[in-house]
């Protein structure tokens, strides 16, 4: 927390409820034969979650976005860096219910995240009883109905005694969200909550998250690889590549005006039927460069990990990961090329 660059971009005057500062984690892998190899899964990530805001973290598989969510959920211990809850560092030893009371999670797989042998009632009454939000009996029952109402599983009486296998994927994900809400948290971590749902049911879940942000003022972390959904939902966005956050800013600004070479490539690759005429796979005959792929994170490239694929890479890129360059209101890009452009105030060539 020494320089400004290590702090996540903040909205002025708003107090983050949960904040990751320079979070880094290495996972040991079974090297065998005495080799102690580690996967450098996440490198110096700083993300702040603010009440009433949805912060998206986008990236491809293996970019570290789910690892970040699980660090926030305290399923892993970070190798270094700090998590601040209400600006107070979270003690790694003192875990438990106080943290969980503030921070809850919705998992990706609506089939795996509910216990297939328990009813909807069981899933919702446990958090109520554990956190004392309702005592036994009528109060619990009433609160469960309120929660089902909240996630729009109505009429609630039809759902309360259902087993998970009697529900559709979308309905299960609502139960999963209701379970998290039963704790009455201030932060909701949503790890790819729609990726396993049928397309026609995704928007309802996204709209529910929007309602939780606007009405209940929750701070929401939205992890996704679906960039269009992040644009629909999020206020702020962080783009990750191979365990590093390469670009952050308001969702509209980052997605409509990406600056980092990787963000440009990523957003250029998303199918966009509304721009069919300008950017169509079928009409382009240009020679394509050999496809690049994310690096092996056991032996990641030094410095910026995008260097081997980057058309603008220079020797400096391999030396150290660039500190963030502020290029707009809270819009930060970790890239030497972008920083040079800004300092020489060249117009954007692309």
């Amino acid at each position: 927390m020494t320089t400004n660059a290590t702090l996540p971009p903040r909205r002025s005057g708003e107090q983050p409820v949960l904040e990751a500062v320079n979070l880094k984690i290495n996972f040991p892998v079974g090297g065998g034969l005495g080799k102690n190899q580690v996967v450098h899964a996440l490198d110096a990530a700083s993300v702040a979650l603010t009440p009433g805001k949805i912060t998206a973290v986008v990236g491809e598989s293996g970019s570290g976005k789910t690892t970040l969510a699980r660090l926030f959920a305290r399923m892993y211990q970070p190798t270094s860096g700090t998590i601040l809850l209400d600006e107070v560092p979270v003690d790694s030893k003192k875990l438990g219910r106080d943290y969980n009371r503030a921070v809850q999670m919705v998992f990706q797989d609506p089939f795996g995240s509910l216990n297939s042998m328990k009813t909807v009632r069981h899933h919702l009454q446990r958090p109520l009883l554990i956190h004392g939000h309702a005592k036994r009996g009528q109060a619990v029952e009433q609160r469960i109905h309120e929660l089902l109402e909240k996630v729009k599983l109505t009429p609630t009486i039809d759902f309360i005694d259902k087993m998970p296998h009697q529900l559709s994927g979308g309905q299960r994900q609502r139960v999963s969200i209701a379970r998290a809400l039963a704790v009455e948290p201030r932060v909701l971590l949503a790890d790819e909550p729609i990726s396993m749902l049928d397309v026609s049911m995704r928007l309802d879940i996204l709209n529910l998250l929007i309602e939780l942000r606007d009405v209940d003022q929750l701070a929401i972390l939205y992890i996704t690889h679906d960039i269009a959904s992040a644009r629909y939902l999020a206020d702020d966005i962080h783009v990750m590549y191979a365990g590093q956050i390469v670009e952050s800013g308001s969702a509209q600004e980052v997605i409509n005006g990406p600056r980092h070479p990787y963000t440009r490539e990523l957003i250029g690759a998303v199918p966009d039927p509304d721009k069919l005429r300008e950017n169509n796979l079928r009409s382009s005959h240009a020679e394509r460069p050999a496809p690049g792929e994310p690096p092996n994170l056991i032996t990641p490239p030094s410095g910026c990990r995008f260097t081997p694929r980057c058309p603008f890479a220079t020797a400096a890129c391999s030396e150290a990961f660039p500190s963030a360059t502020e290029i707009g209101d809270r819009h930060q890009v970790a890239c030497y090329w972008v920083a040079n452009q800004k300092s020489s105030s060249c117009p954007d060539p692309v």
Binding site: D198, S200, R202, L203, D204, A228, S229, N256
Partner: peptide, 21 residues
């Protein structure tokens, strides 16, 4: 079609399809 949020068009509030397949 309306279940896919737009990438470049103006963001408007969208509704999916009610119910399930």
């Amino acid at each position: 079609r309306d279940s896919f949020p737009p990438l470049s068009q103006t963001t408007v509030s969208l509704r999916g399809i009610p119910g399930a397949p």
